[in-house]
Amino acid sequence: MGEIYVDGARCQGHARCWALAPETFEIDEEGYGKVIPGRENSGDELNVRKAIRNCPERAILERSDDEAPAKNEEVATS
């Protein structure tokens, strides 16, 4: 699995991701989930897969190649 992220437009703050995989997800001051920086590649871990399957809003997504941060491209073009 590629890099994962929490889609802020979908997340409604159920906090299931944080309950099931606190090593990968954190919760902001309004209760919305996000991936802890540096943990974007943990999508294959058991707890993270559980979190993905149990997210009521289906908000934990995998970045598709064209959406991926432009880091590599920048390196390639600079």
Binding site: Q12, H14, R53, N54, P56, E57
Partner: peptide, 15 residues
């Protein structure tokens, strides 16, 4: 049960 994406608390903007 491990897969339990239930609707007990509703979803969307009125969760």
């Amino acid at each position: 049960r491990e897969n339990n994406r239930h609707l007990a608390f509703g979803g969307g903007i009125h969760r």
